[in-house]
Amino acid sequence: MVESKQQWKAWLYLAPAIVLLLIFTVWPIINTVSMAFLEGYSGLTKAGGDVTFKIGLGNFIHVVGHPDFLQAMKNTILLCLITVPVSTILALLIAVALNAIGPLRKALQTIFFLPYVTNSIAIGMVFAAMFNVIGSIGTRRPVIVSYGIVNDIIRLISGNSDPKNFINFINTGSSYEMNMLVMVIYIVWNALPFKILVLLGGLQSINKQYYDAAKVDSAPRWRVLTRITVPLLSPMIAYVVITGFIGGFKEYTSIVGIFGENMGPVHDAGRLNTMVGLIYDSLELDNQGGASAAALILFGIILVVTLINLQVSKKRVHY
C-alpha cells in the first residue's frame, strides 16, 4: 500500500514536466506528422473556413520537387561528411595536448570554449567580415576598400601586392568550393569547444596507470595515442561523432550568419541551402504541410545515419 502511495507521489512530482512535454513536444510531433500527410496544408487556408485537405504524399512530392532540394541535400551531407571527422580529429588532438600541459591549461581551455558561448549569428558576421572583400570587383578597375583580414594575410605572406591578388571567398562571383571552404572552417571551429570539452573530460577519467604501463612497454607517443588513448576514449568519441552528425544535419544558422537569408552569394542565392533551410523556406511561403514533410525527411535521414553510427560504434567502441 505504501508503495502505491509512493508511486502516486512520484507521478505528482513528475506532472509539471509531463504536462509541458505533452504541450510543447509530444503534441507538436503528432501535429507535424499529421500535417505532413495533409496535402497543401496551410494554416492560413485553414483559418479561412471549412476546408478539408486530401490525405496523401503530395507534400513530400512537393518538397522533393523544390528547385533547391537536391542542392540542399548535397550541401547538408557534404558539410556533415567533411566537418564531423575534421572537427573530431582536431578536437581529439587539442584535448590530448591540453591534457598534457600543466600551466596555462585553464586559460587555453577558456579560449577554446569561447565559441560555444558566443552567438553563432554574431560569429558568422565576424567570419563574413574576415573573408569579405569590400569594394567593386570585376572587370572594372578595382576599387577595393578592404580585402578582409584573411586576404590581407594571404597577400602579406605571398608578398604580391597586386590589387588583383586576392581570393574571392564569399562575394559575388565566388566559387562554390570557396563558399564551402569558408563554411567548413566556420563549422569546424564552432564545433570544436563542445567536442574538446567532452573528450577532455574523457581523457581525465582514463586511469593514469595505463600510461605508466605504456611507458614501461616503451610505446612511442604516436602509438600511445592510437593504441591506448583513442580506444579508451572511444565511448566519448562515438558520442561526439553521433551528436556531431545530428547537429550537422541541422546546419542552418551558420550559413545565415555568413551569407544571410540568401543562403548563398548574391549571384547564386540558395546555392548553400540546407535541409533546415528548406523547412524555413516552406514556412515562409506559409506551406506548413511542405515544412512538416521536409522536417520528417530530415528526421528520417538523421535516424538512419544515427542507427548506422550506433552499429559502427558497437564494433569499434570498447567496453
Partner: peptide
C-alpha cells in the same frame, strides 16, 4: 621507455580494450 624493464603493477594495469594476446604483444610491437 629506455630502461628495458618489466613492471607488474599492483592492479596489473592491463589494457582493457586489448585481448590477452594483444596485451602481451604490445611491448614487442614497440
Amino acid at each position: 621507455e629506455k630502461r628495458g624493464i618489466g613492471l607488474v603493477f599492483q592492479n596489473y594495469a592491463l589494457y582493457p580494450h586489448m585481448t590477452v594476446k594483444q596485451n602481451i604483444l604490445f611491448p614487442l610491437q614497440n
